[in-house]
Design a protein around this nucleic acid. Structure first.
Lengths: 255, 255
DNA sequence: CGCTAGGTTGAATACGCTCAAAGATCGTGG
DNA sequence: CCACGATCTTTGAGCGTATTCAACCTAGCG
């Protein structure tokens, strides 16, 4: 058990940005001490309602979404193992969106007090978590482009390549395939399309040998070509070590 | 000169979340010491290129955007006075999007070292800045919904109500009107529409008495009705004081 | 005065939506 | 074990919103 695989998905993710020291690994472990089950379909956070709890997902998929009064729904992003839910909760009194479990979940509820302590005591860890928040915003930005300026075909392909990359980072995908616990309705509400059109688009992708969904599993037939037709560039997702100038700033701060 | 109007737009914004102490006002002032002019059209940040500078906008408008290889462009968000640009820059080595000045700008370049210090020394200010980052993410989320699930008519109305609220918070809008230094092409790339359709949609809004653009000025004819047809709820934008439980956590951390 | 950038309008097209109905899959209870 | 219902997937047909292409208008500026 090394720094990469300790602490599950979150440790794995943060470990790809900073080299985790033993004390930092302990700190993550302490943070993720508590654990709770959440049944599929349950809402972790409700739009417009008070909330103050932050979670880290250990297992399962969730969605962040908003619903309009006539029932139209837009999914903002998928929440995967190692992701935070409600990281900013302590700063707002009500949520501006909902979060619902797509599958049964195992989540770590965080203790607000010890999180503040952690930010003070482990500045490098704090930076890594801030990096994760920045990456979440990058994912959301890409979602804006996907929905605003890409065709249904590009859009759908792009989402699947993104999911492949994200799941790989936390060890939940093979080279070209992964479990996909989603209905086409969920895909439609993510992509800003109708269910029917998602279905037709998936068929086109399948007919072109780019990607194939069998039950709950996606297999990407030709990743290179899919990446190309979707004009996917993984830059916004890939984790690099923190810039050296920032590491040295943090080292100064810690002393 | 009181806490609300000191320090310009940023102080005004942060002051609506925490009551600024004198030392915190000083801290903001110190942070915004430097100043730089940027000409309209100039790019502050370029997609895919290294960047490490954080700015706070003092005057003028900018856009955050991404461009696809065939020229399609999607604007992610407008950057207004009091907003941060590249707040996460120290944590990434290249940017995942571009930022360009729409008008001539006056910006405050921040000094990375003193920003880290500020985070350590003024936890309440740090929390207020984190709140601002969370609000930016909320704005981006609303952009996803706008582009993904609203009709062109709703979408356009929604954007203008959002801008009105955002500009009011930093003292740049009257009750029902504000300066709009945007072409219809910029609006189109923001809303994920074609220029032609933006033009027709604006005409419809004008014909219905909801909003009227004269030159560089927008006048909202019927804010109530516009808010209603766009299904706009200002919750995600409005600043409330930090929850009491968080204030007490921060107080403990500071001592 | 002519050039350029932006705004406005019309006509034809296309992409994606709605409505509708028929398969497939799965859990559950008779 | 099979029948049933519920949920999800798939396909067809017609429609509508938004796009593209094209032309013309307007204002600002050298």
């Amino acid at each position: 058990m090394n720094a990469d695989t300790a602490n599950g998905a979150l440790g794995r993710k943060l470990g790809s940005v900073i080299t985790l020291s033993n004390s930092e690994i302990d700190c993550i472990e302490a943070m993720l001490k508590r654990e709770r089950q959440v049944a599929a379909g349950r809402e972790l956070v409700c739009d417009g309602e008070p909330y103050d709890q932050t979670y880290v997902i250990k297992e399962g998929w969730a969605i962040r979404f908003k619903t309009l009064s006539d029932g139209r729904r837009q999914i903002l992003n998928f929440v995967l193992p190692g992701d935070f839910v409600g990281l900013f909760a302590p700063l707002f009194d009500v949520s501006d969106h909902s979060v619902a479990a797509l599958t049964d979940l195992v989540v770590h509820p965080l203790d607000p007090g010890s999180t503040v302590e952690m930010f003070a005591d482990c500045p490098r860890l704090a930076a890594a978590i801030a990096w994760s928040a920045g990456r979440d915003e990058a994912i959301l930005s890409e979602q804006v482009v996907r929905v605003g300026r890409r065709s249904a075909y590009e859009r759908t392909g792009h989402l699947f390549v993104e999911l492949l990359h994200r799941l790989r980072l936390v060890g939940e995908a093979k080279q070209r395939s992964f479990e996909l616990p989603l209905t086409q309705e969920i895909l439609a509400d993510t992509l800003g399309l109708s269910i029917v059109h998602v279905n037709r688009t998936l068929r086109r992708l399948r007919e072109n040998g780019l990607l194939c969904i069998k039950g709950e599993r996606v297999v990407i037939g030709d990743l290179e070509q899919l990446t190309s037709v979707a004009e996917f560039s993984p830059q916004y997702l890939t984790a690099h070590p923190l810039p050296r100038r920032t590491e040295s700033l943090l080292a100064t701060a810690a002393s």
